[in-house]
Amino acid sequence: MNALTTRYDVTEKNPRLFSIEVDTRDAWREAIDFVTTHTAFVTLSQITCADWIEEEVFRLTYLFTDRARSQNLMVQLPIRRDGEGLPSLSNRFPQAEVMERDLHEMYGIPFEGNDTLYPFVLEGWTDLPPLRREFDTLAYVHAHYDFQQGREDNKDVKVEQKRRREEAKRLKAEQEEASHDGE
């Protein structure tokens, strides 16, 4: 951790979670090299993306775990939303291959050098990558599915609620009456 703090501005999220932020591809590459060769954070555990559409960036988080699996470090980098990509890490970390494939499908981020960026969970998908903020789930559903009527004998919830309230009131009144009679 000392090696990391001398070189980067490290934010301590909690005693077992830290983050560093870089802003260019070169700085990101350098940070990944540094973290995995000069610190104990050697295992790539997760790659995450969050869409900050109002800032026009995707914020990528590379989560590294130390050898003892007791601390995590997030290396974070914003990239432009308009198709900017990053070099794939799959040559160094085989587990990155499927994580990048997932993010490519859900956000449309190209990872240069990853040759498995074919469809992952969405088959025949032609719309926007669905986890982008501008993808409207409701509009998609209206465009692709028909509304199905409920069963005819479905009860109106409000009618049922009213009936139950009245039933509870009646029971309470009966109980009170019975207790008065007892006295």
């Binding site: 555990s45 997760q46 969050a50 869409d51 995590n72």
Partner: peptide, 27 residues
Amino acid sequence: DIYVATESARGEFGYYMAGDGSAHIRR
């Protein structure tokens, strides 16, 4: 943002979560 993890019956199970100041989860 935060990362938390639980040791499930099959191993580490983690969640990354980001808030944005609203009543909704950003990611």
